[in-house]
């Protein structure tokens, strides 16, 4: 194997499975910082992560609300995964590994928060909403706004896919689960966490 191949493999592992190298307290510290920074950046563009996989823009809210959304999403995903891990895995698990890696897996949403910053996204979102609710939309948008919005949506979609892939890898590594059992329990947790996080966020709104 050439050095270039080794380096590219290592890069791929850092991008799609960094948990091979980082877990536990280090991952928790890093992950929590990422969640808080994502909420902080998101607050400037009114970008809400109002559900484990959700990204929405528009609604103004106090800073603490943006920070709380990230924390709720993380906990709602990590706890069911830990319990499934306890049931399915043959290894002895550490909750700090599950919490840490799941927090770290949310880092693509930091990029999402950044690409959602331009005001053009909010303008296009408002335009689309007014088109859906009224016959004559009141908000006006420029072609550049549409370009920025389309670019942001492509990035957001890629980041959602990347984050789900990272969350799965985090689960597989921290709970030592592979194959059909891993996929099935992950999907159930993801759906459950999505519903639970939406409910919790709606309750604190």
């Amino acid at each position: 194997m050439t050095e270039a191949t080794v380096n590219s493999n290592r890069l791929a592992q850092w991008l799609f499975n960094p948990f091979k190298f980082i877990a536990g307290f280090k991952a928790l510290l890093l992950g929590l910082s990422i969640i808080l920074i994502s909420g902080f950046v998101g607050s400037f563009g009114n970008t809400h992560f109002d559900g484990v996989l959700d990204v929405h823009t528009g609604l103004e809210a106090p800073m603490w609300f943006f920070l709380a959304e990230g924390a709720i999403n993380w906990i709602c995903m990590a706890i069911p995964l830990f319990f499934f891990g306890l049931i399915v895995s043959r290894s002895s698990l550490r909750i700090i590994d599950v919490l840490g890696t799941q927090a770290m897996a949310r880092w693509p949403y930091l990029i999402t928060a950044v690409v959602m910053l331009p005001d053009a996204n909010r303008r296009v979102a408002e335009y689309l909403m007014s088109t859906l609710t009224q016959n004559n939309p009141t908000a006006a948008i420029a072609p550049i706004d549409v370009s920025i919005f389309v670019f942001a949506m492509i990035v957001v979609l890629l980041m959602v896919i990347w984050m789900v892939a990272l969350m799965y890898q985090a689960y597989a590594v921290s709970c030592n689960i592979k194959g059909a059992a891993a996929i099935a329990t992950f999907i159930v947790s993801l759906i459950g966490a999505e519903i639970l996080s939406k409910i919790v966020i709606l309750l604190i709104l």
Partner: peptide
């Protein structure tokens, strides 16, 4: 080994 704790534990398991 420059690996995370669960990676090493998984290898041992």
């Amino acid at each position: 080994l420059g690996l995370s704790y669960p990676t090493v534990r998984n290898r041992l398991d």
